[in-house]
Design a protein around this nucleic acid. Sequence first.
DNA 1: GCTTTCATTCTTTTT
DNA 2: GAATGAAAGC
Length: 834
Amino acid sequence: MTSNDILQGLNEAQRAAVVGYERPSLIIAGAGSGKTRVLTSRIAYMIAQGIEPWSILALTFTNKAAAEMRTRIEQMVGPKSRYIRMGTFHSVFARILRENAERIGFPQSFTIYEPNDVKNLLKTIVKEMNLPDEKYKPNLLASRISYAKNALITPGAYLAKSIYAAEDRQAQIPEFGNIYDEYCRRCKRNGAMDFDDLLLQTNILLKEAPEVLARYQELFQYILVDEYQDTNYAQYIIIRRLSQQHGRVCVVGDDAQSIYSFRGAKIENILSFQNDYPTAEVFKLEQNYRSTRTIVEAANSLIEKNARRMKKTCFSEGDVGEKIRILRAYTDREEAELVVGDLRDKVRQANEKWSEAVILYRTNNQSAVLEDNLRRRGIPYRIYKGSSFYDHKEIRDLMGYIRLVINPRDDEAFKRIVNYPARGIGDTTVDRIAQLAATNNLSMWEAVDRLVAESASVTCPMQRAIVRKVTDFVQMIRALSMAGTTMGLYEFGMEIAVRSGILALYRAENTPEAQSAIANIEELLNSMQEFKERREAEIRNGEREVGEEPTIEEWLQEVMLMTDADKDDPEDNNKVTLMTVHSAKGLEYKFVYIVGLEENLFPSQRALETPDGLEEERRLFYVALTRAKCSAVISYAEMRFKWGNMEFSRPSSFLREIDPRYIDSEVDFTARQTRPEPEGEQPKAIDELRRRFDYRFQQKRQEEGGRYGARPSDGESSSARRFTRQNDPYRKPQSTSYPHPKTQFNERLERAINALGQEQRRTLRAIPTATPSSASATPSAGGYTVGERVEHALFGRGEIIRIEYHNGDQKLTVEFQNREQKTLLAKFAKLRKL
DNA sequence: GCTTTCATTCTTTTT
DNA sequence: GAATGAAAGC
């Protein structure tokens, strides 16, 4: 495309914003105003004008947004676009940090601590400092540390300022400063960075290594930042530093959509951009191309209630469209019923795909009832959740091994896996190792290493047997680390899964959970394969140097910084989307449902405590509304489950803030609902409401022709539900469970097992393969009789003492030689008849 | 040293 | 209601 082609079809304001790339620019982009289009066009235009793609740094809010932008730019200017440095702040600077880690005292192989690691480390520190853990809560400490880091306050600076100490005394955590200090020391000792470090350490690097700063200042001649209203101080300073010389910064954002103050985002950044860059040109994109007039005007009427905003008038020239509807429900369950019912009718009537509909909520836990309802009706859905990757235990365990192999100083990984699968290294031993490490200021790995070396001497503080076990562990990790240098990525992953014993553990267990765990592990390995293939393709296309072969370090980094939203699965389309309002930022749907519009939920209770908080909630609601292209439906419930018991709620004040002109509602949500009676009366009121609700619910179900089945309560389904929910973020329908036949999971697994020592092999081999692709290879499932003698790979010989039938399979109770009784499914047990 | 049972906390929102 | 953590039993 030529420069002119790129400008085609843009409105005047958009065009001006695209062309003015030589000067600092502030693009105020209202919701649906074609912001992404302007950004991509601007970059494409620059390239078309002869600017080198590698001199462009484009920072986005999610990896997905970056990937989409890259695709669109590529469509305009071709493969050159691949050289643009583009991604989230975190992923772009993680790469830069890795290249320069040694300059600031981190190993090049530093690992990234996920929030869980952070909490565990904090717990350890609190314990070691002998502080009361009921005051020093890991979550509180973590968020305070995060806050400090995002404000670029180092432990030294923190301890030096008496205001902070005073604040901490007030909060009854006077030792916080020291905890923060120790936390940072530990991270450094462990060669680990948390998410916030990726920004803080980048700043430290740019400050302490002038030659590095100069290099990137030189390299990144043009800097573009998306969602600028949600950048925090640390990000702001990074941009300032990098652009110091040339000042060619383009920021895009909408102050009305600033919703991340909880993680340090400063709306001031966008409000005062013109002060920071006095020569900046300001572009306002005010025409909304996404939504109906009703939606845009309703959203305007809401956001007007905010005091702090930039002046702009958003308008739509589209259809008037339908009014916003408000649904009232008695309980959260009924809310789900009403919303999903409405959604279904809507989608069917419009003859649209399920993927055109989204259900938005304030908090993640609201998804459960909705899921339940969708599942019962058989409507396909997909849930976006923050960080599904670490949610699975088996993934975290496997990652623990990978992390330790990459960076043996990673104590959090060490602690997680040193005795998993169980190998007789108990808490006492681990504590002792930790102590040894602490007194010598070493990581646990280094401590163990030294211990093993000295184990022959008399001074060794541990028993022989334990030293033996620890030595075995050390050797296993060493062997794995060696394997990493010779094997392909997938084989290496497989090697870890096999050698660690994790795979064997799950294969020995004949439960659906175990099978799903194996499927997840397979999925993880697949992602390695994908990563590798993608990399190799890039090298083939000349986008990367030949030396840049894919490594496990890079894969790990990518995976750690990836969120659920980034995983765009094209085969996973045509599903209703469920997500929080926060994760809906930047997305659009034809039919939007916003649930839980209740006081203390949306706006949230915490937010009501500060005036700024309320304004931010209002912006959040604004974001939710403006996701809608055609229609928006809002709902609330009068009662809701909270902490396991029913609580009353009132309709959100936000409902009253939308100009009633745009609302179509039979219910009167403006009237203040009568508050529940004094304490003692509450149960009665709940009973009454429940009765009404249950009646309505039953009736509905009958109208639908009893399609949900005869079971009225969900008591029985709870176990099933737990299973499904546990696996949901990952699980795919059975048919698409193996999207990568080319990875040949089972064949490669066999190969890995074959390479093992004989002893291990015997155990592993005999354990059934739980994946369907090899199910055919399973010998005689069923056909057992009571009294028959059988042999099991793990439990040895035994006798069948009872047989039950379970979904057509035989469920065998076997008494083994050691008198132990086990219940096994014939299909999976892979017993040998004697 | 490992496994099971009970108590406690938890809810914003995410890179 | 669910997940995590401590205590108690094996």
